[in-house]
Amino acid sequence: MSQQSNNEEPRPEIPTSGVVYGDIIYWGTIASAIIAVIGQIISFLTPNSAISPSILLAKIWEGKKVDGIWAGSGMARPEGEHWYIAQLATGEGLTMFGIALGVFIVIPAILASAYTMFTREGRPFFGVLAIIAALITIASFMGLLPSPMTAG
C-alpha cells in the first residue's frame, strides 16, 4: 500500500485541537520570553541585587558544581521547590519565572487540546492520551515522583 495523493480533493480540515495547542504554546512562549527579558533588565539595573548575576555567572564559568554556584550568590541552592515564586521582586527570580512559564505553558495547552478532542472532535482515545501526557508533566512540575537528589 502506498501513501496516496489526490489533486481533486479539497484541502483537509485542520483539527481545532491542534490549532488550540499551537496557539497557546506560541503566545505563551512569546509572553515568557518578554518576562525573561524584563527580568534580565532588572537584574542588570539593580545595584547590589539580592541574587547577584555576576557571582552566579563567574562561578558557572569557573566550573563550580551546583552547590558551589549558589553559595555566596545571595540565596542558598533551591531544594526541590519553585524558588522563583518567592523571588519575583528580584531580576533573577523574575527571569527564572519567565523561563518556567514557557516550560509550564505546555500543560494548559495539552489540557485545552484534550478538552477540544472530547467536546468538539469526538476523539476520546487521543483525548485520554493527551490527559495522560498532561498528568505525567504535572507530576514532574509538582515534584510528585521520588527524586534522586539530596540537599547540600
Binding site: 552566579l56 549558589w70 526541590g80
Partner: peptide
C-alpha cells in the same frame, strides 16, 4: 527544582 537551571545563563 534542583537549582541546576540558572536563569542568568539560560535566559
Amino acid at each position: 527544582k534542583y537549582g541546576a537551571l540558572i536563569a542568568a545563563l539560560a535566559a
